[in-house]
Simulated assay, not measured.
Amino acid sequence: MVRFGYTMMTEQAGPRTLVDNVVAAERAGFDFSVTSDHYFPWLASQGHAPYAWSVLGAAAQATTRIPLMTFVTCPTIRYHPTVVAQKAATMQLLSEGRFRLGLGSGENLNEHVVGGGWPSAGVRLDMLEEAVEIIRALFAGGELNHQGTHFDVENAKLWDLPGQAPPVGIAVSGERSCSLAGRLADLVIATEPKAELLDAFDRHGGAGKPKIGQLPVCYDTDRHAAVLRAHDQFRWALGGWPVNAELPGPSGFEAATTYVTPDDVAKTIPCGDDVGAFADSVRPYIEAGFTEIALVQVGGDRQRPFIDWAEKHLLPALREL
């Protein structure tokens, strides 16, 4: 059975609100949750970017059942992989085994802030592979020394390790990242319903492992208001990963989406309160082979109405697909 998740979108709300929302999502019956990990929002109109790991720690204490996950953390530039390993191990302990570590090669939007430059896509994947190997080694226990192509580690050790390490997920967008995920990850992450990505993941060792997708939706009883809000806050999503990974800040996303219209957004993001339209947007992910699908409700001030509506109407309909 496909599982349906709730997204704590850190670009849309402050930390206390994010925690309150995931508590509500747990009560509403969502099967899992994921959390973005950004230093900037994509667009200034979104208005937020709290530190995701503090939010996750608070969420672990405020909830009891719902799984938590980064979607995704870049463990290569803004964070050193040894620090990511420590954070993830601590989260697994705080959540009593409900945490999964989602990793990706990152976006210039967030990683440029430390002044280290922005490598090419191929180099970023090399860095990600080395980072995952470091994280895995630290999860295994003992002291780690590592002199690699991109990272050095000196006498590192995790002193608080959970009995079971957090499962590691890797975000994919092409053949090379699918190969990396198939070999090194416990699950795969994608934001487009492309069966070829999941097939490539399976070919490289991922067969039988969880496959997690994500898509934005914009609930509102006023469809016109929903379309305008989706355009205002989520038109960046139409740019695609090759573009979005390279832009350095909200002003870049503003410029890149100048000619995106509300109608363009409405063709991609289901807007309003038509359960059938929302289900139609989810169906391609199921048909592609995703086993878990996280929904992103657009608009920080419209989370609770969405959660209430999802509990009563959307989740029952999606579970019948």
Score class of each variant (00 low, 15 high):
residue 7 T to W: 06
residue 7 T to C: 13
residue 7 T to E: 07
residue 7 T to Q: 14
residue 8 M to D: 04
residue 9 M to A: 15
residue 9 M to H: 12
residue 9 M to P: 00
residue 10 T to A: 14
residue 11 E to T: 07
residue 11 E to R: 02
residue 14 G to W: 00
residue 14 G to Y: 01
residue 16 R to K: 14
residue 17 T to H: 03
residue 18 L to W: 09
residue 18 L to P: 00
residue 19 V to S: 02
residue 19 V to Y: 00
residue 19 V to M: 05
residue 22 V to Y: 00
residue 22 V to C: 01
residue 22 V to T: 06
residue 22 V to P: 01
residue 22 V to I: 10
residue 23 V to W: 03
residue 24 A to Y: 03
residue 24 A to T: 01
residue 24 A to I: 03
residue 25 A to D: 02
residue 25 A to N: 12
residue 25 A to Q: 12
residue 26 E to H: 12
residue 26 E to S: 13
residue 27 R to H: 08
residue 27 R to G: 11
residue 28 A to L: 12
residue 29 G to C: 05
residue 29 G to L: 09
residue 30 F to C: 07
residue 31 D to C: 05
residue 31 D to K: 08
residue 32 F to N: 13
residue 32 F to P: 09
residue 32 F to G: 12
residue 32 F to Y: 14
residue 32 F to D: 07
residue 33 S to K: 13
residue 33 S to F: 04
residue 35 T to I: 01
residue 37 D to N: 14
residue 37 D to C: 15
residue 38 H to D: 13
residue 38 H to R: 12
residue 39 Y to H: 15
residue 39 Y to D: 12
residue 41 P to Y: 05
residue 42 W to K: 02
residue 44 A to G: 13
residue 45 S to E: 14
residue 45 S to I: 07
residue 45 S to P: 02
residue 46 Q to N: 10
residue 47 G to L: 07
residue 47 G to M: 09
residue 48 H to R: 14
residue 49 A to Y: 02
residue 49 A to T: 04
residue 50 P to R: 11
residue 50 P to L: 11
residue 50 P to M: 11
residue 52 A to P: 06
residue 52 A to H: 06
residue 53 W to C: 06
residue 54 S to E: 11
residue 54 S to D: 10
residue 55 V to E: 04
residue 55 V to L: 03
residue 55 V to Y: 00
residue 56 L to D: 02
residue 56 L to W: 02
residue 56 L to A: 13
residue 57 G to W: 05
residue 58 A to L: 08
residue 59 A to T: 02
residue 59 A to G: 03
residue 59 A to I: 06
residue 61 Q to A: 15
residue 62 A to Q: 02
residue 62 A to R: 09
residue 64 T to Y: 04
residue 65 R to H: 05
residue 65 R to P: 00
residue 66 I to G: 05
residue 66 I to R: 09
residue 67 P to M: 08
residue 67 P to H: 03
residue 70 T to W: 06
residue 70 T to Y: 07
residue 70 T to D: 14
residue 71 F to G: 01
residue 72 V to Q: 08
residue 73 T to R: 11
residue 74 C to I: 00
residue 74 C to V: 05
residue 75 P to E: 11
residue 75 P to C: 13
residue 75 P to N: 10
residue 75 P to Y: 09
residue 76 T to C: 15
residue 76 T to L: 05
residue 76 T to I: 04
residue 77 I to V: 13
residue 77 I to S: 05
residue 77 I to G: 00
residue 77 I to E: 02
residue 79 Y to H: 15
residue 80 H to L: 07
residue 80 H to N: 05
residue 80 H to F: 01
residue 81 P to G: 10
residue 82 T to C: 11
residue 82 T to L: 10
residue 83 V to R: 14
residue 84 V to I: 15
residue 85 A to G: 10
residue 86 Q to E: 15
residue 86 Q to W: 05
residue 86 Q to H: 14
residue 87 K to H: 01
residue 87 K to G: 02
residue 87 K to D: 03
residue 88 A to S: 15
residue 89 A to W: 08
residue 89 A to G: 11
residue 89 A to N: 04
residue 90 T to G: 11
residue 90 T to K: 06
residue 90 T to C: 10
residue 91 M to K: 01
residue 92 Q to K: 12
residue 93 L to M: 14
residue 94 L to Q: 04
residue 94 L to E: 05
residue 95 S to Q: 11
residue 96 E to V: 01
residue 96 E to C: 10
residue 96 E to S: 13
